[in-house]
Design a protein around this nucleic acid. Structure first.
Lengths: 198, 198
DNA sequence: TGCGGGTACGGAGACAGCCTCCGTTTCGAT
DNA sequence: ATCGAAACGGAGGCTGTCTCCGTACCCGCA
């Protein structure tokens, strides 16, 4: 994203090729086996040695963050769509749902996201996207509060937590879709103003 | 609990000693490092070989369930206290809080509990206690609904899920107590009847 | 108290995954 | 074509899981 081209050296071809192969293999494995999948297996499938994988992505979170970038952009696009909505309450609902889908991209994703959400830790490559999501949620919450749809005591961070939690429940695979819908309804009636008409 | 004494053989002394030592060591390690702790380390601290640990407790879940039994009894005791309350709404609130504390006994506990909650799997040693908790929650929910304090669409299972989720958030250690309180408040205002006075 | 049979012990070892180090290869610039 | 730098990759050290089987221990009976 902010790939600094300032140093005169241009990137080597094999570097680019390997990075792309790693990202593709990692996405496949994350999708199939969850984020806890064997990184050795990812490297093998990408046709590189483990050393190369760790040079490109020093930690599992770094790899995860890189794989997630595509989805982050998709989420930004949805955000742009949602921002067009006139009904602040509906916008908030859709945004929460979009976040939940994002958090459900890979099984096990909510865990590192929660850890990254405490910010404090600038070394964590997931911290920045998390902070952005919380800030955006807060914007939607405030707008809906101004329109009188959401209780004043609710904060963006609270609904971020709720969305991550629902995604976590979903990810454990222990619950059917109907229960999940009731859980979402519980959250929604939790943040809505009591005397809200809609 | 339902230790079948039907077979004439009486248990050997070393078996009992080792089992007790294992449970104690496991509890210490679960408390300190979470349920993902090294079982080898547990065995070593208990002064037994790995083989002995795995003979007594074939899986991590089996060991976890055994360690959890003490706490399960404590929870049953609290349930008895709570059952004395006259206000059904207050009883439900306290029961949810008691469950949440139970789920927070060890870091990482919510994960296997959710997996066990889907029941389907009678081999899982955590399934039975989970089912009991869900049933109990449902009782409290129905009582509170009869008193008009809880929306009719809410089910015991939903609040079980909510309690596990809050415990999960707590267990990630990523959130301060104030945010956690707001999350609980969100859940509570989610299940309460809108025009409820209390 | 000593003996015998059967149960339980425990550690060696096979296996998998993480991560690093460094000799070798490959790339791009000159 | 050559050279220096940068990247590769796999061997290997480490930790953890789980099993198998020779050995030690415990209980019951004499």
């Amino acid at each position: 994203m902010s790939d600094s081209r300032q140093q005169g050296r241009k990137p080597r071809a094999d570097v680019l090729r390997n990075r792309a192969a790693l990202l593709e293999a990692a996405q496949r494995h994350f999708l199939k086996y969850g984020i806890g999948t064997s990184l050795e297996a990812v490297a093998k499938e990408a046709g590189v040695g483990p050393g190369t994988l760790y040079r490109h992505f020093p930690t599992r979170e770094a790899l995860l963050a890189a794989v997630l970038q595509t989805r982050t952009k998709e989420l930004a696009a949805r955000r742009a769509d949602i921002a067009q909505l006139e009904d602040a309450s509906e916008a908030l609902r859709q945004w929460l749902r979009a976040m939940e889908e994002y958090f459900s991209a890979f099984s096990g994703l909510p865990e590192p996201l929660m850890v990254a959400a405490r910010a404090q830790d600038p070394g964590n490559p997931l911290t920045v996207p998390c902070a952005a999501l919380i800030a955006t949620t807060d914007e939607y919450v405030r707008a809906a509060q101004l329109a009188g749809h959401v209780r004043p005591s609710v904060q963006g961070y609270d609904l971020f937590l709720a969305a991550v939690s629902v995604a976590w429940v979903k990810g454990t695979g222990a619950t059917d879709d109907v229960s999940l819908d009731r859980l979402r309804a519980l959250v929604e009636s939790g943040y809505r103003e009591r005397d809200d008409a809609a």
